[in-house]
């Protein structure tokens, strides 16, 4: 299973990076979502897929009776999912507002912060 997951993670990252390399904000946003999923799966796989029993302690027992799935990556990923969603929403709104103000979703034309004709700095003291 882990080998197959490695392949999936590789594919997720490939597509995510490919989308992030494009010049259009919308494509990049899709890339960000895929990147988040890729990272989550990477953490999950790195914690090994030894058992598919949910990490629960049965009622009346002190510790899990059988082998259970590794709980630590699950806890890490669970918060990561929510965080990456908030982050994604923020980026989405940022892109949207940028589009409203600049009228484009092409990153090459978004040069407010770093204008193209930025001359050399003042040479005085």
């Amino acid at each position: 299973m882990e080998t197959a997951l490695c392949l999936v993670v590789g594919c997720l990252f490939t597509v995510a990076l490919y989308l992030l390399l494009s010049k259009h904000i919308i494509r990049m946003l899709l890339g960000v979502v895929l990147l988040g999923n890729g990272v989550n799966l990477l953490i999950f796989t790195a914690g090994r897929v030894s058992s598919i029993a949910p990490p629960l302690v049965p009622a009346g027992a002190e510790t899990p009776l059988t082998d259970v799935a590794n709980p630590l990556p699950q806890a890490l990923i669970l918060t990561a999912i929510v965080i990456s969603f908030s982050f994604f929403a923020f980026l989405l709104v940022l892109a949207y507002r940028a589009y409203q103000d600049l009228g484009t979703d092409d990153t090459d034309q978004m040069r407010v912060a770093e204008p193209e004709d930025d001359g050399p700095p003042p040479l005085g003291y």
Binding site: E2, T3, L5, C6, L7, V9, G10, C11, L12, F13, T14, V15, A16, L17, Y18, L21, G38, L42, T45, A46, G47, R48, S50, N70, P71, L72
Partner: peptide, 28 residues
Amino acid sequence: AALALAGGAGLGLFLLSIVQRPFDPVLS
């Protein structure tokens, strides 16, 4: 696409070499 493939393959192989190593379950 070529660049993205390099990055993605790199991460996939990286993960593969992680899971091929012994697992330290002390935290879990």
